[in-house]
Simulated assay, not measured.
Amino acid sequence: MRAFVFPGQGSQKVGMGAELADASTAARETFEEVDDALSQNLSMIMREGPEGELTLTENAQPAIMANAIATLRVLQRDFGVSLVDHGNFVAGHSLGEYTALCAVGSFSLSDTARLLKLRGQAMQAAVPVGEGAMCALLGADLEKAQKLAEAAAEGQVCEVANDNDPTQVVLSGHAGAIERAIGLVKDFGIKRGVPLPVSAPFHCSLMQPAADAMAEALAETPPGGLDLPLYANVTAAPVDDPAEEQRLLVEQVTGRVRWRESVLAMREAGVEHFVELGGKVLGPMIGRIDRDAATSSIITMEDLETLAKELTS
């Protein structure tokens, strides 16, 4: 069995998608469709920068999605490989869940781009710049991370945002609480706490205004039927009901990304091969979660050609 997975924020970089666009009409048309949907030349920012503009949450989220969907469409149109024929499940890390829904026909590409633009804007607006922060805990499991978060909170918000793999957990909350958490890591047997260069404290209760904004947006543009089941971030369980997924997407804004548990659940369901489209972030994470899982991270035309041969041989 196989799962196609889609990366989240942090996987953006200037030049992303340029090789695909130069080599494939399918990729070019994908980027043009996103530009049209947003009334913005996002593809130019992706190709040429500046990096500061690409890193803005409202640009990074639709850009990462566009790059992954372009990769998928090249696989489908140029190499004749259908996601439905060769996959059993999909999943995405944070914003990647929207990409996954687009990949299985639950959202149109234009709607996905608009929803992610709004999501990025709403997340940025939820907390004034400087009031929130995030940090990655290296050498931490979930139990250690939760105990550290409780100790560092001191009446402020300090919560587990991402349970990425057995060696990396991310905390999110008030800047002061995150600073305290970094200072306390050794007391909890954690190797290191690293501040993350983010503009807002994602996936914690401070994001409630953004969750409210997404509830409104998703009421107007609800997900449709899914061609394949999706493993949702906040439940680490498969979903194929659009109404349930709509609710979970709202919950996801403030909820924990249960990536480690999602991968283990997919393995338990029989997934042997994970294909990451449009990034090289989730593949290594999956390898740390389960060394026996086969992973492919697909970015270039050469990667796509190799994958297509593997899937069709």
Rank of each mutant, 00 (worst) to 15 (best):
A91W: 15
L116R: 03
L142N: 01
C158E: 02
K144W: 09
A133N: 09
V90L: 02
A133R: 13
V129D: 10
D111A: 05
E97N: 00
Q121I: 10
A133G: 11
A125T: 15
A113E: 05
N164W: 13
D141F: 02
A133F: 11
A140L: 04
H86N: 05
M134N: 00
T112L: 12
N88C: 08
D163P: 12
A133K: 14
T99W: 03
F89A: 02
K147D: 14
A161I: 08
E143C: 06
L138E: 04
L118S: 07
N164K: 02
Q124K: 03
E143T: 13
G120R: 06
A145N: 04
V157L: 01
C158W: 00
G139K: 14
A153T: 15
A151K: 15
A103E: 01
T112Q: 06
L109I: 14
L101F: 07
Q124H: 08
D85M: 01
L109M: 08
S108G: 10
G132W: 01
F107H: 08
A133E: 02
A133P: 07
G132P: 12
L142Q: 10
K147L: 05
V90N: 01
L101Q: 03
E154T: 03
E131T: 14
T99Q: 09
M123H: 06
L137M: 05
E143K: 14
L137Q: 01
G130K: 11
A153H: 04
A91R: 14
Q121E: 15
A140K: 10
G96L: 02
E143N: 05
E154A: 15
R119L: 09
M134V: 07
A100G: 03
N88I: 09
G87N: 00
H86L: 08
L95E: 04
G120W: 06
A151M: 10
L101P: 01
M134K: 04
S82D: 10
Q156A: 01
Q124M: 03
L118P: 02
A133S: 15
E143V: 15
S106M: 03
S82I: 03
K144F: 04
G87M: 05
G155F: 08
L109G: 04
N162P: 02
L83H: 13
C135R: 13
A136M: 11
A122W: 01
A136Y: 07
A122M: 03
L137Y: 02
A91Y: 14
Q121H: 06
A103V: 15
G132S: 03
N162Q: 00
K147F: 02
A161H: 04
V157I: 15
H93I: 12
R119S: 04
A103K: 08
A133Q: 08
L137W: 00
A103F: 08
M123E: 10
L138K: 14
Q121F: 06
V157K: 00
C158T: 14
A153N: 03
A113M: 05
D111K: 09
R114V: 07
G96A: 03
E97V: 15
V129W: 01
A153Q: 11
K117L: 06
L137A: 07
A100Q: 06
V157R: 06
S94V: 07
A100K: 13
T112E: 04
A113V: 00
A103P: 03
S94C: 08
G92C: 09
D111Q: 00
